[in-house]
Simulated scan of single mutants.
Amino acid sequence: MGLLTEIQNDALSDTTPVATLLRKVLVLASNIDSDLLEDWVRHELHGYPADVEVPKYRTMGIAFKASGATIAAQYNNMPIAQLVVERAAKNKEVSTFKCRQAIGTILPDQLGDSGTCRLNFDNYLPLIEREMNEGVSLFSFWGEISAALVVGIVDAVRSRVLDFVLALKNDTRMRERSTV
Score class of each variant (00 low, 15 high):
139 F>H: 11
69 A>L: 07
93 E>M: 13
86 E>C: 13
32 I>G: 06
123 N>V: 02
59 T>V: 15
93 E>D: 14
147 A>V: 00
37 L>T: 08
117 C>K: 05
121 F>S: 04
59 T>S: 14
107 L>H: 12
172 T>H: 09
61 G>P: 01
108 P>H: 05
141 F>Y: 01
7 I>W: 02
151 V>S: 14
101 Q>L: 11
22 L>A: 06
122 D>P: 05
4 L>T: 12
4 L>S: 04
3 L>K: 13
70 T>M: 04
136 V>D: 02
107 L>W: 03
125 L>W: 02
176 E>K: 13
136 V>C: 05
167 A>K: 12
14 D>V: 07
52 V>S: 04
137 S>P: 00
164 F>K: 00
38 E>V: 00
89 A>F: 11
147 A>Y: 02
106 I>G: 07
52 V>W: 04
162 L>N: 07
1 M>F: 08
5 T>L: 12
71 I>E: 14
3 L>P: 03
156 A>M: 07
56 K>G: 06
139 F>Q: 11
116 T>N: 11
4 L>H: 00
42 R>E: 13
119 L>H: 06
148 A>C: 00
24 K>F: 05
110 Q>P: 01
17 P>W: 09
123 N>P: 01
148 A>Q: 12
135 G>S: 07
143 G>M: 05
7 I>A: 05
129 E>C: 04
178 S>K: 10
5 T>D: 14
104 G>Q: 14
141 F>R: 02
10 D>C: 10
102 A>Q: 12
67 S>M: 00
85 V>A: 12
59 T>L: 06
155 D>Q: 13
86 E>Y: 01
20 T>M: 11
180 V>I: 08
62 I>E: 03
32 I>R: 06
28 L>K: 05
23 R>Q: 15
121 F>L: 08
149 L>T: 03
121 F>E: 02
52 V>E: 11
84 V>W: 00
35 D>E: 12
11 A>I: 11
176 E>S: 13
10 D>M: 15
4 L>V: 13
49 P>C: 01
132 M>I: 05
16 T>L: 10
27 V>S: 10
75 Y>F: 15
171 D>C: 05
48 Y>R: 02
24 K>L: 07
42 R>N: 15
49 P>Y: 00
163 D>L: 10
60 M>W: 03
119 L>G: 04
43 H>Y: 15
41 V>N: 09
64 F>S: 02
31 N>T: 09
109 D>T: 11
92 K>P: 15
145 I>M: 00
166 L>C: 01
146 S>L: 08
43 H>D: 11
5 T>Q: 15
162 L>Q: 08
148 A>F: 06
152 G>Y: 08
179 T>V: 11
128 I>T: 00
32 I>F: 08
147 A>S: 15
11 A>C: 10
174 M>K: 09
62 I>V: 15
161 V>P: 09
106 I>F: 04
70 T>G: 02
57 Y>G: 06
70 T>W: 03
165 V>K: 00
77 N>L: 12
149 L>W: 02
7 I>N: 02
135 G>F: 08
135 G>L: 07
108 P>R: 04
14 D>P: 01
